[in-house]
Design a binder for these strands. Sequence first.
DNA 1: ACTATCGGGACCTCCCGTTGAT
DNA 2: ATCAACGGGAGGTCCCGATAGT
Lengths: 194, 194, 194, 194
Amino acid sequence: MKKGEDTRVRIITAAAALLDEHGYHGTGINAVLASAGAPRGSLYFHFPDGKDAIVSAALFAVGAQLSDHMEQAFAVAATPAEALDAVFGFFRSRLIETGYRCGCPISTVSLEVSGSGSPVADTCAQIYNQWQMQISQHLQYVAVLTPAAARHLAVVLLSLIEGALLLSRSQRSTAALDAAQTHAVALLSLPIPH
Amino acid sequence: MKKGEDTRVRIITAAAALLDEHGYHGTGINAVLASAGAPRGSLYFHFPDGKDAIVSAALFAVGAQLSDHMEQAFAVAATPAEALDAVFGFFRSRLIETGYRCGCPISTVSLEVSGSGSPVADTCAQIYNQWQMQISQHLQYVAVLTPAAARHLAVVLLSLIEGALLLSRSQRSTAALDAAQTHAVALLSLPIPH
Amino acid sequence: MKKGEDTRVRIITAAAALLDEHGYHGTGINAVLASAGAPRGSLYFHFPDGKDAIVSAALFAVGAQLSDHMEQAFAVAATPAEALDAVFGFFRSRLIETGYRCGCPISTVSLEVSGSGSPVADTCAQIYNQWQMQISQHLQYVAVLTPAAARHLAVVLLSLIEGALLLSRSQRSTAALDAAQTHAVALLSLPIPH
Amino acid sequence: MKKGEDTRVRIITAAAALLDEHGYHGTGINAVLASAGAPRGSLYFHFPDGKDAIVSAALFAVGAQLSDHMEQAFAVAATPAEALDAVFGFFRSRLIETGYRCGCPISTVSLEVSGSGSPVADTCAQIYNQWQMQISQHLQYVAVLTPAAARHLAVVLLSLIEGALLLSRSQRSTAALDAAQTHAVALLSLPIPH
DNA sequence: ACTATCGGGACCTCCCGTTGAT
DNA sequence: ATCAACGGGAGGTCCCGATAGT
């Protein structure tokens, strides 16, 4: 039981890292197993539904992990701008530490499977929705916005982060992320009327 | 001579469409050939360097096409906000017409190959750079910004668009793109001090 | 377990026969699989290192098999000439039974890959070395030769056999093999001073 | 006319070299064209019957070239042993100069196609026959042998050379060729009674 | 005598999922 | 929970030959 659970976690962790780097189609099950040091036979015990089940589990795991990070940043931060700095800082570290190989761990897979009818597409949408709602609720609470304005701002901020991570990875530079951060912080300090 | 060029164009066009939908690893050479109605032998005559050469050519083609669209939008538009509306409108149409299967035709491939050392990664970076410079120069000219401010704003706008397209595809809704557009237009009408 | 080993043997046997007939580049993996009645998936389970691994295994197998034949011939034979007759007879039967399609099962592959840096080249060299040493030791023992003389004679005999098999296959006649045998037997009965 | 003939010769020369190194199936037409610097289109003008025609022409060319070498060696040599030394010396130089990549330029192809019904198989057989007859006639003339004895000895010598070249290439050493030469020279100096 | 293009088949490799036996 | 083995399909690359137009 304990050992099995451990194997499961190792598979998910390995899968998440590889998915971030190479995406859905670029991540083979063999590579996941090799990276996790797990035997092939046990894979379909833990994930009877195959690759999609592994991918969904891995994405949900990193999604929740990032959610926790944000929650913690929100709890610690004195102002919304500080919370934003923490989130941007987290991704900036990831970019640099991994040599611009890892950005948002959902985005690549999300783009690959969107519109394919794959269950993984739902998984990605759910995770993005959750992040969006989380940011929205935080903004509503600390920035004294109406629910609609908070939702709007959350979408804008999430788009900005995702787009900046995409550009930063491509250009192998944090410039885009830096610009996005500057802009986002200014945005929260001096909100544009919506 | 004419016929060969036609085949080449058909291959590139087919590849671009498939890459947008399914990404690099999700787009097989066979699928490209079938979609283009071209035989295998022709392919390696036109692209002796294989898949990466096809992908790069396809991305450069759509990159230039989008660049032309933007240039035209910039030329026609009376204000920067109008130009933005045209660009957002273009992508909104793409999303809806393809059932949210196509967004930014570069993003998926870019994320998949970034950090892989593939020549395709360079291609993507070049295209993003070109778009960024194009937007930047337009802003500098029509919005009376310093070069640095224009560059900054261009990165922010491009990030916003890319991120919004990503979220819109995932959520199968133009909500994110709409929010980003509203925000972007407001941004240009009432520029935040940088 | 037993079944797996059986499949492995079937693959090796089929590969050895095809390699003898058509050589390295003329023997396709598909042909091996069809001849062995094995599915593709099994092949890369048993030989994860691909074609070269299969080829090396097949050559080592036939090399050892021929080595055993020689050993047995040496053990049974009353004189070196009788042993030689057995060896030549073995190859003569092979030639005739296969319609001059199979001769030395190593030679074709050896020539194809020699100087290519392929691991198969090492395999071939090892097998030839082993045969050479085996013949040399037998000669040293039964013909009362110095080690150096035995080695020298072994190389000459092996060259003679290999060359005669080559010519016999090409000319679709055992004439060359017959002449080589006559000469070799005479050689052992009345050794030329070295 | 002149230019065409030159292209033809360049193709044949390039093909002969590649065939010696890599054999029939290992030598692609594209590689031949690239090595010869010839355009693809002109190939089927010079050799309408395709690859086999090129291969046969290349083999006949090197076969004749070697035949001339031998003839010259025979003409110059004072004794049969000297002639042999010249022939062995020629092949030894080839081995060393090409890093053991080239030996007998016929053998690899001959083994690959023997028993395949290919016209190339006939080509190889013809060349070997010609060499054999040439050696035989020389022996008959200078060594005062009966026609039958000369034929017999020629086959033995040719087998010895071919086998020794095969082993030398495989073992990346001239040891086998040296031993064969020593033996062959001794053979001619002190002929075994046949 | 050569160019540019077509045409499809074969190559080796790797994929993901399944099975029955422990 | 894991293992050995199967099963066949798809991946990208390269092959040789053909063709229409000079």
